[in-house]
């Protein structure tokens, strides 16, 4: 989990610094939002990689899987 957080932070620094120099505020805000989603998804997955999958939930919802 620490590796994931470090990777996303590193990617953030790599991308946000040039964006900041160009004053692309919208891109920075969207980048931070996407980074938060990526981090949440990563932590959620790594916490329990064997939990019921998205497909499992969808198929259960439409009655295709027990």
């Amino acid at each position: 989990m620490a590796v994931l957080a470090a990777l996303i932070t590193a990617l953030g620094f790599l991308e946000i610094i040039p964006l900041d120099k160009k004053e692309y505020k919208r891109e920075i805000v969207l980048f931070i939002f996407l980074a938060a989603i990526a981090l949440s998804l990563g932590l959620f997955y790594l916490k329990d990689p064997f939990r019921t999958s998205i497909a499992g939930h969808i198929l259960k919802l439409i009655g295709k899987e027990e």
């Binding site: 990777l7 996303i8 990617l11 953030g12 790599l14 991308e15 040039p18 964006l19 891109e27 969207l30 980048f31 996407l34 980074a35 989603i37 990526a38 998804l41 990563g42």
Partner: peptide
Amino acid sequence: PLAGIYTVI
């Protein structure tokens, strides 16, 4: 610049 983080998602 969003390509990298989008592919992580």
